[in-house]
């Protein structure tokens, strides 16, 4: 499960990820972090079965938590060239047995790199 965490000027200074990891005994994998002086946004990956517990602890520590459910999507423009394959940091895309580009959307971390490289503008984030 991927969680988007939003930190405000107070919580951004606390070692919240480590504290949550210790309290819940759950490994938390940081996939993307954008931390400034007064606010921050971090995308983390937590095991599916521990997600609720982790979320509870984070909310108690006044972090805004959002489950990422809408991942990268594709329209009919795709010609299955595969240019996205080597760009994606988490290997969402691969060619299947039919030589079509297959997407493992659960691995998507919302970085948007593939959207910018797709020559047929086939990739997008659903709103």
């Amino acid at each position: 499960m991927l969680l988007l965490l939003r930190f405000d000027s107070k919580t951004v200074r606390e070692p919240i990820i480590s504290m949550t990891s210790i309290k819940t005994g759950t490994p938390i994998n940081i996939l993307k972090a954008d931390v400034g002086a007064r606010r921050g946004e971090i995308i983390v990956e937590v095991p599916e079965e521990r997600a609720k517990e982790v979320e509870k602890i984070l909310i108690e520590m006044e972090v805004e938590v959002q489950e990422i459910t809408k991942t990268i999507a594709r329209n009919d423009n795709c010609v299955h060239c595969g240019l996205c394959i080597s760009i994606c940091p988490t290997e969402v895309f691969r060619l299947n047995g039919e030589n079509k580009v297959e997407m493992k959307t659960e691995k998507c971390i919302h970085c948007g790199a593939c959207i910018k490289v797709c020559p047929t503008m086939a990739l997008y984030f659903p709103i």
Binding site: V79, H80, C81, G82, L83, C84, I85, L95, N99
Partner: peptide
């Protein structure tokens, strides 16, 4: 190991 992307579509070539 460096990852490779094709630019041509084998699917449509087939």
């Amino acid at each position: 190991d460096v990852r490779v992307s094709p630019l041509s579509s084998y699917y449509i070539a087939e």
